[in-house]
């Protein structure tokens, strides 16, 4: 029986030794986080459920390759992000998806009047997220929604910390434009001068 004080690492070792209750405890402990990560990455509840399931199954099957790598939660986040990428790739290849594009294309939201900003943002940010490339979504969800530090996000995504920060800023600006209803105009307009000098 797995007590509440047991660390993830202890539970991983027990799972590897054949104690299936130990993996059940790990699932119980991490499923909400994993599900929310998938939900914000994918938008639809059914997709998030599928990706979460896939992530835990992958985690279980590949548990022996994880050992000594990083914290279990870091690794599980990575596996979950990859499960989301897989699902997005598969749905992009499905017959009904728009061809010639990697990502689903949700309808852009209507422009939001400035005074209603904060409330409207909460409603629309989910949809706005889905208008961004998956790499942008991942960094936003991990850092801004799940509040993980840059270093942890870097470990999860397997990129340098500097890349996390610059990707984060570009993703935030893009999301801010989606929220402001400028996304469509931005795609048609030439790049801003301020982007050039960087």
């Amino acid at each position: 029986m797995s007590g509440p004080a047991e660390s993830d690492d202890q539970l991983v070792r027990r799972t590897l030794a054949g104690d299936r209750e130990a993996f059940g405890t790990l699932v119980e402990r991490h499923r909400r986080r994993a599900y929310n990560l998938a939900l914000r990455m994918l938008g639809r509840e059914e997709d998030a459920r599928d990706a979460t399931q896939e992530a835990f199954l992958t985690a279980f099957r590949k548990l022996s390759s994880f050992r000594g790598d990083a914290a279990f939660s870091t690794w599980l986040h990575r596996v979950t992000v990859n499960a989301c990428y897989d699902l997005l790739r598969r749905s992009a290849r499905a017959p009904l998806a728009p061809s010639g594009d990697d990502q689903p294309q949700p309808e852009p939201g209507p422009p939001i009047p400035d005074h209603a900003e904060a409330t409207a943002d909460r409603v629309d940010v989910r949809r706005a997220l889905l208008g961004l490339p998956p790499e942008h979504r991942a960094v936003l969800v991990l850092h801004d929604v799940q509040d993980l530090p840059y270093e942890e996000v870097a470990r999860i995504l397997g990129v340098p910390v500097g890349t996390v920060k610059s990707r984060l800023h570009r993703a935030r600006v893009a999301l801010g434009r989606e929220l402001r209803g400028e996304a469509e105009a931005e795609r048609l307009a030439p790049p801003e001068p301020s982007q050039e000098g960087r």
Binding site: G24, E28, Y35, A118, D121, V125, D144, R172, G176
Partner: peptide, 30 residues
Amino acid sequence: ALAARARGALRGLPEEPAPVGVTGPVLREV
């Protein structure tokens, strides 16, 4: 301003409960 607005909106997102059925198939496989 855009980045700060995005950050604020994302941080305001609530954490949803994990739905029933997320873990059942996983545990059966285990």
